[in-house]
Amino acid sequence: MHHHAPLAILPQILLSIPFILIFIVYILAVFKTNRTYRPWPPYRTVMLCLGTGLAILSVAGPLAERAHYDFHAHMAGHLFFGMLAPLLIALAAPIMLILRALPTRLARLLSKGLKSRPIGWVTHPITAAFLNIGGLWFLYTTSLYSLMHEHMWLHVFIHAHIFLAGYVFTISLIYVDPIYHRVSYLTRAIILVLSLALHSILAKYLYANPPEGVSATEAQSGAILMYYGGDLVDAAIIFILCWHWYKAARPRAAFDG
């Protein structure tokens, strides 16, 4: 097994700053909009606090240090940073809040950007699943996992990708913020099930085929955590998607009856 050097403080700072800024901007936007509009739902603010806090915990401090040489801790960080934190932040509806807080002209510009073709392409569930699940397969089945512990900027880039891919994947499946390029519930459900299967298959693959530089014992422990921990987060996404689907279909069912 490779013995990696301790994680430097700089990548921890670089990866933490965006979430600190997101937290500050979000809280300021809540105070600003509450003076003009009806109060912003407190549970959304709680979700944002939990999501940003969990993200920072994953990339800075004891867990991040241990994840640098312990695959089980790394996988815990992956679940927090790449799955749970993106879900919590998505449920906080940050785009909706920012649109509410911005002056009308800037809000329209942001809306126009969100309606653009590149955004529609990136946020399509198929693209988002490829970036998210495909990225994980590439990370763990090549030498990239080992290399990211040896090169600081690669470490930062990969972690940024893991969060952004997880966030885009989440918002491509559950529509909390305004989504201008919508996909049917059935399509999203199919892609979610396939992605869940590929995530589980990867966990089983890692159980038998440790990444470069990881012992068999750590690989098995981390793979088990990835398999069952991933299922819990995916179950939450499935529940939210099905609940939205039910609410969307309910008026039509009542009308048909």
Rank of each mutant, 00 (worst) to 15 (best):
Y180P: 04
E150D: 12
P94A: 06
H159Q: 09
G61A: 05
A197T: 09
S146Y: 15
H74P: 00
Y207F: 13
R108C: 10
M1T: 11
A107Y: 11
K204E: 09
R182M: 15
H4D: 14
T217W: 11
K112R: 15
H3G: 05
L147I: 08
G134P: 04
M226L: 14
L139S: 03
S116K: 07
V176M: 09
E212A: 07
F23I: 03
V59L: 08
L225S: 07
E218C: 00
L106G: 02
S184W: 12
A60R: 02
Y43T: 01
L225Y: 12
V214E: 08
P86Y: 09
F23V: 04
V193F: 10
I89T: 04
L202R: 01
L114M: 15
S200H: 08
G134S: 07
R252Y: 14
V168W: 14
F163E: 03
T104A: 15
H68I: 03
V30D: 07
L202I: 08
V30R: 07
A101H: 03
P251R: 08
L102N: 05
C242Y: 15
I56H: 04
T170K: 01
D231E: 14
H78W: 10
L206C: 04
P94L: 06
S116L: 12
P42L: 13
L54V: 01
V59N: 05
I9W: 14
G230V: 03
H72Q: 09
A248E: 11
L154M: 13
A64E: 08
P211I: 02
T217F: 13
V168M: 13
V183Y: 14
L173R: 00
V122P: 01
A253Q: 14
I240P: 02
K247V: 04
K247H: 12
G229I: 09
R66L: 15
I190E: 14
S146Q: 13
F31G: 00
P41F: 13
G77W: 10
S195A: 09
F157V: 15
L206H: 03
R252I: 12
M96T: 11
Y37E: 15
I20Y: 13
C242N: 13
G113V: 03
S16M: 05
D177G: 01
F157A: 15
K115P: 03
